[in-house]
């Protein structure tokens, strides 16, 4: 029987805007297919065991909370996290988690906060928050030919992608990474980053299944594909927002 181990990084600190929904979506969609799933919380002072996890999730937090974990993340977890990324572990990093995976976060007062440097992107603090509904288009989303992913963004940093990192998708509605280059999120190896928080995975089951499939294929050489589920409700929710925002 297949089994997937999910690592939830700093769950009590990085859980802004319904981040827990993403974990729940992964868990349910694995359970509904009879695949065993375990969620491991890894917080301050707890070791990140890079070989143990198939999917790593890092959400967003308020500045106050990000301050608390910053030292632990950089001193204790940086190396094994980068190793896991390089080894092809599947990651989902949302909002603050997305920013932390990059090189640095430059505050609007010029001060630079060092980040993990697992990926070549960086974030510049910006006074005006980029907030609102977000729709972006992903290439190669097998179950969902239109490739449209629906979410909500709320960030004050503008993120820019460097060499070696590709965007997760192209903005169709909203701001995305910086409101300038039309990109949303980032992809590197098996890492998925996005500014779309909270209900990203529950409402976009094709993306969820893409992430699950990657993790299963990496772990089990004989794994072929997931059995389809009834996604009528998810589709209704996704399409009602697409209709409301971009199809008059």
């Amino acid at each position: 029987m297949y089994e997937i181990n999910i690592c939830h990084l700093y769950p009590e600190l990085l859980n802004l805007y319904g981040d827990y929904g993403n974990i729940q979506a992964l868990v349910r969609r694995l359970e509904w297919r009879g695949i065993n799933v375990q969620v491991h919380s890894v917080s301050i002072g707890e070791p990140f065991l890079q070989d143990r996890y198939d999917i790593v999730f890092m959400g967003g937090g308020q500045n106050y909370e990000q301050d608390i974990l910053h030292k632990d993340l950089l001193m204790q977890k940086k190396e094994p996290l980068i190793e896991a990324v390089e080894n092809g572990t599947v990651f989902l990093c949302i909002c603050g988690g997305f920013q932390l995976m990059g090189r640095y976060y430059k505050l609007s007062n010029g001060k630079e906060i060092e980040c993990l440097g697992a990926m070549n992107h960086w974030t510049i603090g910006y006074e005006k928050r980029l907030t609102g509904n977000l729709i972006f288009k992903m290439e190669g989303l097998k179950q969902q030919p239109d490739g449209l992913v629906v979410g909500f963004e709320n960030h004050s940093g503008k993120t820019y992608l460097g060499d070696g990192v590709s965007p997760l998708g192209k903005v169709v509605y909203g701001n995305g990474n910086n409101g300038e280059d039309g990109y949303e999120g980032a992809r590197y190896k098996n890492v998925f980053c996005s500014y779309s928080h909270g209900s990203l995975l529950p409402k976009n089951p094709a993306l969820t299944d893409e992430i699950i499939t990657l993790a299963l294929k990496r772990k089990y050489k004989d794994f072929v594909s997931l059995q389809p589920l009834n996604d009528i409700i998810e589709t209704l929710a996704r399409e009602s927002m697409i209709k409301r925002l971009i199809k008059p």
Binding site: N15, G18, D19, Y20, G21, T131, G132, F152, G198, S199
Partner: peptide, 8 residues
């Protein structure tokens, strides 16, 4: 305008 709090 953000309903993602329902997941909390």
């Amino acid at each position: 305008t953000d309903i993602s709090w329902l997941y909390d």
